[in-house]
Amino acid sequence: MKSWLYSLVLMLAATTAAWAVEPDELLDDPVLESRARELSKQLRCVVCQNQDIDSSNAGVARTMRTLLRERLIAGETNDEIIAFFVDRYGDFVLFRPRLKPATYLLWFGPAVLFAVGIGVVFVTIRCRSRAVLDGTADPLSPDEEREFEAIFHENEGRRDP
């Protein structure tokens, strides 16, 4: 019982037949419109699963797109518009997480990891290249050479090398 109720709660998305951004939503001003598209790709649809509002067909996403464009026309900056949605939905709506203590690790983690990696590589290479590298290696001693020959021909004839 609980599970079907739950799944129905999520059905809001299915109530309208819209398909992503609709023609009637578009702005005439191409500059504003391209800003609108860019912004709506950064905002997450709150009822869908992992979709931005630009490509979502949920009713809420449509309303959000309309609001976003109205604010653009009103002359708000991108940051102000983003802030408007964050005020209402929290950081969850942002597909590009804001830089704050909780996301330092996210934003700097890979770079730090890379730096550490470079460090490890550097140390490795230094260790490995410290040995003499003049293009030739110590040749095998005569004893080794004999042992090698023995091993080399040990299985001769039994297997095709």
Binding site: Q42, D91, F92, F95, R96, P97, A102, L106
Partner: peptide, 10 residues
């Protein structure tokens, strides 16, 4: 206990 999203822009 906060929810954030990480999406294509990231």
């Amino acid at each position: 206990d906060e929810k954030i999203s990480v999406g294509p822009p990231y």
